[in-house]
Design a binder for these strands. Structure first.
Lengths: 266, 266
DNA sequence: CCAAAAGTGTTGAAGTTACACCCATGC
DNA sequence: GCATGGGTGTAACTTCAACACTTTTGG
């Protein structure tokens, strides 16, 4: 799995951040946001997780989805964007709300309580969290090179089987929503670099939908939508026939979606 | 439109309700649930609204979707069910979360503030609301005959153009989700009596999707799903050829959905 | 007998699936 | 020259949309 070893409290970091110092008193103790951040390495779908360090009670490491309590003067979307910006340094990340999770016992595990005590002013408060999923170009955030080198990392979705709090459930809901959405809107482009090949896009769809898709049919469907612009460029340095590169054509997509398109038909 | 005249504070009613007296101190000031309740009268889709009475500042009546702050020891789903039960007296209503709405200014209109002051212990608290939509058989709740005779009523969806707080936006989101969902799961049966005709179901789909559907194609598709049981009964007393009555067949539906059906294809 | 809604089949068009071989490159 | 992934077309099948007339009842 990914390399996540020691614990850094990104929430404290936030509060101490000078820009936010005047907001610190307005943290709402009852509402948080959690962001499931997806990334794609041309092979598998990944999720960005943070590490709480070893739990004293279980001796095991607790991984979680990044999140924070909200400030009373920001919207939920703003709070989610803030969490993303603080962790990855990236603005304008694709973001979509998944829903609210509010089981009173969602933070009830012993190892979770330890963690909460170390990072929350009111660790016993009832917290409802609003979950988001976001899509980032994986190269835009390399945890190894950031200040979160040891507390955040990309984990392949398939290898995640347990998370802190109710985050495993949240991840599954986010994944379900991504699967649904990818079929009716070309949001997958947010996971790829600006220039990409049809094979990369193909693989991305297979990874998200978790099933093989026929190569020729996939290409035909995507190209028929006319939302890809072929570039006068090919892959270089690959040990096989170099592939045509494409760009996502936002203009055509806007035209298409205003005409009422809503289905890729996979 | 529907008949909604005077104001009754269903929230106060809740707090004073003996069963809940011991919970009253645990009302969470920052999180509420709001329920968009849909009903169908065989002609149009309706929504159950409550009336705040006339606003002093605008002189206009403010209609809203029913809702309440949550208790710290209940889940969000439980809170939504509580609101539904208190208003309609019905248990086991079909319920689905729409999402969280948390703009800090969502309760900012003057006329809304008046109302809040009359019903909330902390009228100025930042409140995030979790919206739900629910489907009820319209005959199961007749506001005229209930204790909410004058403060709650069914309004045709098409005639609603303004609501208190951000409830109009919430209604539109709920409606969008209902449209999406009705195409892939037969939840429409929750809006009809146990015995119904294909024409009624047809009209229901047209009302929700807000477009005409071909009669023959509709019947074929629905019948092909084999989730309807034809009864040995017909309509009586109608001034035209009486229609065959059907029941929803839950057993077949379960079988079908476990086999992975997910599309009505409208 | 008239008005009103129920009920019923076919056809052409569109879309979907399944499938196999040659091509360009680096080594 | 060989291994690797890139790129291409067609035929069978399924699904969908469009469309008009006869039937049964109450009044």
């Amino acid at each position: 799995m990914c390399h996540l070893h020691t614990f850094k409290d990104i929430i404290n970091k936030t509060i101490l951040n000078s820009e936010n110092k005047n907001k610190a008193l307005e943290l709402n103790p009852n509402v948080s946001v959690d962001c499931v951040i997806f990334g794609f390495d041309f092979d598998q779908l990944h999720c960005l997780l943070i590490d709480s360090g070893l739990s004293k009670s279980t001796g095991r490491s607790r991984l979680a989805v990044p999140g924070d309590l909200i400030y009373d003067n920001e919207t939920l979307d703003e709070a989610a964007n803030r969490v993303l910006k603080e962790l990855t340094g990236i603005d304008n990340i694709y973001l979509e709300q998944v829903g609210a999770f509010g089981d009173p016992n969602r933070m009830g595990k012993e190892s979770d309580k330890e963690w909460l005590k170390s990072m929350r002013a009111e660790p016993d408060a009832r917290v409802i969290t609003v979950a988001y999923f976001s899509l980032v170009k994986m190269n835009d955030f390399n945890p190894e090179a950031s200040s979160f080198a040891e507390s955040a990392g990309w984990a392949p979705i398939k290898e995640i089987d347990e998370l802190a709090f109710d985050h495993y459930e949240i991840l599954q809901c986010a994944l379900k929503q991504l699967k649904r959405k990818i079929k009716i809107q070309p949001i997958g482009f947010n996971l790829l670099p600006q220039k990409f090949t049809l094979s990369q896009l193909h693989k991305l769809y297979e990874s998200i939908l978790n099933k093989p898709l026929d190569k020729r049919n996939f290409r035909r469907k995507i190209l028929n939508l006319q939302i890809l612009t072929p570039l006068n460029e090919k892959q270089i340095g690959v040990p096989h026939k170099p592939s045509q590169l494409f760009e996502f054509n936002e203009e055509n997509y806007q035209k298409l979606s205003s005409e009422g398109f809503d289905n890729f038909g996979f």
